[in-house]
Design a binder for these strands. Sequence first.
DNA 1: CGACATATTGAGATGGCTCAATACCTGTGG
DNA 2: CCACAGGTATTGAGCCATCTCAATATGTCG
Lengths: 229, 229
Amino acid sequence: MTATALKIPETFFHSKMFRGLGQEELGRLTQICQRRRAASGEYLIHQNSTAQNVYVVVSGIVMIERLSRAGRRQVISFAFSGDYIGFTNTDEFEYSVVCLSTTELQMFPRRALLEIIDQYPLLKSNARLMGGNVLAQAMDHLFAMGQKKAHERVCFLLDQIQRRQCGISKSEIDLVMSRQDIADYLGLTIETVSRALAKLSGMSVIEITNAHRIRILDRVQLEEMASVH
Amino acid sequence: MTATALKIPETFFHSKMFRGLGQEELGRLTQICQRRRAASGEYLIHQNSTAQNVYVVVSGIVMIERLSRAGRRQVISFAFSGDYIGFTNTDEFEYSVVCLSTTELQMFPRRALLEIIDQYPLLKSNARLMGGNVLAQAMDHLFAMGQKKAHERVCFLLDQIQRRQCGISKSEIDLVMSRQDIADYLGLTIETVSRALAKLSGMSVIEITNAHRIRILDRVQLEEMASVH
DNA sequence: CGACATATTGAGATGGCTCAATACCTGTGG
DNA sequence: CCACAGGTATTGAGCCATCTCAATATGTCG
């Protein structure tokens, strides 16, 4: 480790965005990066506000949601450690972002970040790939909503969380979000989500430790039902 | 008009991608651009193939679809004149693209196009904005699927087509796609689509001239039901 | 421990699906 | 020009998954 390396927060490496970067790039990024800690329930981004900052989740979980004038809500996605949010291409946000737990974040001024990304090919390629992931994820979600039954959609979410929930490769799932959040993500009602979980439990695919903790018993069957490919 | 201007196909101006560009940029683009004409039913892109080319629709309509191993299909979107397709960030396509009518296209080698875009700030900004549009569109679609009833989803599609169908600002809609395509786009069955259209006709929101031609009678109500904002 | 929010369970209503019959549209050959 | 065939769309009837509304249970925080 060189002296300069010490200045770079280790958490930079949590995101794919920063994978494989050299000292120079990381140095530039460190200069514009601010640490931020947000409480559960805190809004990082408000729908219709101007896009100023980009965040990278270091730890915790955030939820991206969208409200209509009619008062209906669609949850767009959940973001975990390493995911970035607010990296939009338009100048105004079309969604809100709220923390579901105490969350540590890196905050970058959007303009400055875009400039730096522009200057380093590897960073640019990383950014492109991550943008591609967001779109691929949206298509998966679309598929689940259009083609799958309630209990399959729940499998889709469980599978996703299990894959992306950082650190844990075990079969334990920490269901941080509320039933209403899940329902609004999957286009269902809370009652249907509850019943779907009960059904999966009855099928011995999962075990419900308590309302916010699930154990996967049959990963093969879960993936089968979750699959959008 | 200068002499060089004559070499540039007028159709370049149909897409937002090329809006506001100078002679130099257009010249570079013309060099790598190929014209292509595709028949109805022809596949431009196959799911899981390598991303080689980017297309811009000059005239006609294409459909972006995604198949699962289980044989289910989700239609991702329909693309009209001026839309580009295949401009993916990953190296492999996660969807297929098929023409719904005789279609004129511009074809660009993806790598070369990316390089040129990189060199011209305005072009880069255009590309970013168009990428943002794709995502915004996906979120709208997600919202419609998660929160709306059958007849509202149909309104969502009709409204979209009416806005994007090139040239026509009238209330006539040319429904090129089949009922199955519509159903797979909206997460419904063909029967439900049929009934939804009949219902809207009964409400005097639309008039069904024939299976593939719709007249909008009450645009306000249509937008109201279609709205995802 | 009690109060309030959140989740589960139950019962009935309903929107959308399935299966089946009919209608319409388009192209082909007599 | 008409008759017919094949594909596509509409309509009908019954069923089932999901929604709605209501009651109960569980969890959380003062």
